[in-house]
């Protein structure tokens, strides 16, 4: 908990500095006529102060909330696999088309979250992809990308 807080406080300090730097390229205006950079500069200053407070609290070892439940290796695997599947979907969507990407996504997710048997995985994945295609593409008329297969 403490180490995480120190890390986050340092990252946020960096972020605040970055915002201040970027805002300095915009016009600040004045108190009478505040312009584009006015509000971001106030916010970045606040963020800087709060990050330093958090850093101070973490270093003093003040309790900043209860620690999270420990995640077992299995849990991290599920999370990692899910994220890979999701990012893969984002990359594949406009190249492979909706139907194929969804099928792949579902196969990956179904296998990753709980290792279902392969034939079940394919059956469920195929069914959900087709139903989703029909529901969103036809019924709700959302333009879904067609890919290499033209579907």
């Amino acid at each position: 908990m403490k180490r995480a807080d120190v890390t986050i406080a340092l990252i946020l300090t960096g972020l605040a500095a970055f915002v201040l730097l970027e805002a300095s390229k915009l016009s600040f205006g004045s108190m009478r006529v505040p312009r584009t950079a006015f509000f971001p500069v106030i916010l970045a200053t606040l963020l800087l102060m709060l990050s330093l407070i958090l850093l101070g609290q973490a270093l003093r070892g003040a309790p900043t909330g209860r620690g999270p439940e420990r995640i077992e290796a299995e849990g991290w695997f599920r999370i990692g696999a899910t994220l890979v599947a999701l990012i893969g979907f984002a990359l594949a969507l406009e190249r492979l088309g909706f139907l194929l990407s969804t099928l792949l996504l579902m196969v990956l997710l179904l296998r990753a979250i709980e290792s279902l048997e392969w034939h079940k995985v394919f059956a469920v994945a195929l069914a959900t992809s087709l139903v989703a295609y029909a529901l969103f593409g036809w019924l709700l008329g959302i333009p879904l990308p067609a890919g290499i297969l033209g579907i």
């Binding site: 999701l86 984002a90 969804t102 996504l105 979250i113 989703a132 959302i142």
Partner: peptide, 21 residues
């Protein structure tokens, strides 16, 4: 969960994409 989570995730993906393609 094995059925539920993938479905929720799929809805999230389609929902966001359908905003502005």
């Amino acid at each position: 969960y094995v059925i539920l989570f993938p479905l929720i995730l799929l809805f999230c993906l389609i929902g966001v994409y359908s905003l502005n393609s």
